[in-house]
């Protein structure tokens, strides 16, 4: 029988890398999945998930146990992905579904923001893959709230803390992100029986 999580954490704090590896084994799938849903591809997911575990190992002596290890490591990967997406966003041109930040708050652009690329229309992919791609087609800000809420199951308060924004912003951003997802899925469903089955 394996050692308890508390023992593994305690040993990891003393620099026992084997103990930490056992912790990694328990959570690597979920951490990797979060990174994959945030970043959209395996290469980035791999790099960032590895970074998260290395950072966790480096700072495990600071882990006080106020939350579970799972919450703590999810927090680390979320922050890493958030920072990476924001870093990339600065280098990118503006996405059409990007919210407009005005004095009156966040507003949705009025432009029609979804077009069908021919390759998407004719790709024969499974519904899950399509949903993944549709999530990736959202702007980083929308994608972040969707992943945090639907994949990680974070509360609105937790999302607001991660993103450094108000509860109201989380509420409206998530609402718009879900509507954007629905519109895109609806459009794809008309073309894809696989998605229709998944959604029914």
């Amino acid at each position: 029988m394996g050692l308890s999580e508390d023992v593994l954490i305690s040993r990891s704090k003393q620099g026992d890398v084997r103990a930490f590896e056992q912790l990694v084994e328990q959570y690597d799938k979920h951490v990797y999945t979060i990174a994959y849903r945030f970043m959209g591809n395996h290469e980035d997911a791999s790099d960032l998930a590895q970074d998260a575990f290395v950072r966790a190992f480096q700072s495990i002596s600071n882990f006080r146990g106020d939350s579970s290890f799972k919450t703590w490591i999810y927090h680390i990967i979320t922050n890493i992905c958030r920072d990476e997406l924001r870093k990339r966003k600065k280098r990118q041109t503006i996405s059409l579904d990007e919210p407009l930040f005005t004095e009156e708050g966040e507003m949705q652009r009025q432009t029609e923001d979804w077009t069908y690329a021919p390759e998407r229309v004719f790709e024969e992919k499974e519904g899950e893959t399509r949903i993944h791609h549709i999530i990736q087609s959202l702007s980083p800000e929308y994608r972040m709230v969707v992943v945090m809420r639907e994949i990680q199951g974070l509360s609105y308060d937790e999302i607001a803390a991660h993103l450094g924004c108000s509860l109201g912003t989380v509420k409206s951003r998530l609402s718009r992100a879900r509507i954007a997802l629905r519109d895109r899925l609806r459009a794809e469903m008309e073309l894809s029986p696989a998605l229709s089955r998944l959604m029914s």
């Binding site: 690597d28 993944h132 994949i151 509507i179 899925l185």
Partner: peptide
């Protein structure tokens, strides 16, 4: 909307 949320929540865990 509920169907969309369920579909996203049901996405599988990805094996590294």
């Amino acid at each position: 909307l509920e169907a969309v949320i369920t579909a996203v929540q049901n996405l599988p865990v990805v094996e590294p």
